[in-house]
Design a protein around this nucleic acid. Structure first.
Lengths: 238, 238
DNA sequence: CTGATAACATACACGCATGCATGTATCTTC
DNA sequence: GAAGATACATGCATGCGTGTATGTTATCAG
């Protein structure tokens, strides 16, 4: 599960590239940063921001707090970087697959399924955890979080409006409210299921379809037609 | 919104009963305990356990930490009491209404709607916040939380199984997994909607129905028994 | 009215996590 | 290969929150 949890007790930690060559400074730094980011993401996902202790983050990545404070200005800066990192990863692995989808309904259902698969990693609940911890507060983390959330929210809102214009999504509450519920239901279901495949994917799609008000078999009517390129993709290149 | 947020800067705080009589010790103590519990619930809901600072809890209730440590053994004891208090309130206001419901589907949808209404208060997210903060940890708060969650989960699981036996709920993933997703989707949607009535109620019911795999109008047929699909503007009165 | 006890306030000690300053190893450049 | 820079480790100071001990006020018993 953990990618870089090897404590590397010997002194030769991460000083050699995969190809055997000596690391360049940039490679070394990037690897450290990645390991710290992933460890911090796991920590944030499981403990929240307040309970996150930086020494544990560093240790679980195979470093000390010194490395962490070299890579990141402070705890807040680390959290912001994690948010950006998770957002980026999400866009790569989930958002990308729905960009080319023409049918809004299919795009939204694919989104839900993709999110469920994405959240099988232990990094999943970062967004939900931080949002619960900071929602309504005046804090840089809250603002950054609102930013990425707003982006996804707008995306869903547009898809819902488009679906309604096409008649594939029935009328109901304002599109933005539906989009909020869509995201919440999807994330809530996925979190509770805690990555137990394959039910997480099916039930996330069901919840999503329900919020949209469409017949649930729209989410299961394409059992063979999987979301683009996302076959039983394993959670993590462990 | 706040019930007992008056700081009562003068010395006559809470020494007189509503009827003007001098308070008895028991009344006085009970009122203090209630105020502290409610303040703590708000705090837990908005900040989580780790970020909860007891002096703020006490002050927002009109007391100091002294009163808090007189009523509760420590921070953990306070959190456990809040969990029990919220659970009790939930059973009174939501659970009670579904006990006499014979139709499992209607019971589940009523549960979702009731939960949405219940969560319009600022006390709502306590369960979700603490669950995210403690899930998977070995902590008394986590165990207590698992207890009340398990109770609700079993309830939903039984209702789902009953509905399937009756044929009103279609087959699908294991009932327990569906129940998990049901709770998660319901809570997630409600939290994201943050109590904006009346959409929270409608969309919570939609999400719930979707997870169950039933036609969504089963969730809107409750208030005003509409004929099937003949509602161009089915949204509730804004 | 008076002692006793509960309800609450105030003051202090302790642990702990953060942030920074300093020290050491590794890499780069010339 | 030596000097400079970068990556990282170690030690220290500070702030902050909890828990507890002690002091003060309100209620109760006789």
């Amino acid at each position: 599960m953990h990618v870089s949890s090897v404590p590397a007790s010997d002194g030769s930690r991460a000083t050699a590239s995969p190809d055997g060559r000596r690391s360049t400074q940039a490679e070394r730094s990037a690897r450290s940063r990645s390991a710290l980011l992933e460890s911090a993401a796991r920590g944030l996902s499981g403990h929240g921001y307040g309970n996150l202790v930086l020494e544990r983050v560093a240790n679980e990545a195979g470093y000390t707090r010194g490395a962490l404070y070299h890579q990141f200005k402070d705890k807040e800066d680390l959290a912001l970087a994690v948010i950006d990192w998770v957002d980026e990863t999400w866009r790569q692995e989930v958002g990308r697959h729905i960009d080319h989808e023409r049918d809004p309904v299919l795009a939204l259902i694919t989104l839900a399924r993709g999110h469920a698969v994405f959240c099988r990693r232990d990094v999943a609940r970062v967004a939900m955890a931080l949002r619960l911890e900071f929602s309504g507060h005046d804090h840089p983390v809250a603002r950054r979080l609102d930013g990425v959330s707003e982006s996804l929210l707008k995306r869903c809102t547009r898809l819902i409006s488009a679906g309604r214009r096409m008649g594939t999504i029935p009328p109901g509450p304002p599109a933005r409210a539906v989009a909020l519920a869509f995201i919440g239901a999807m994330e809530g279901a996925v979190i509770q299921l805690a990555g137990q495949a394959p039910h997480d994917e099916v039930l996330a799609a069901r919840a999503a379809a329900g919020v949209l008000g469409i017949d649930h078999d729209a989410s299961t009517s394409h059992p063979t037609r999987r979301p683009r390129g996302s076959s039983p993709r394993s959670a993590d290149p462990a």
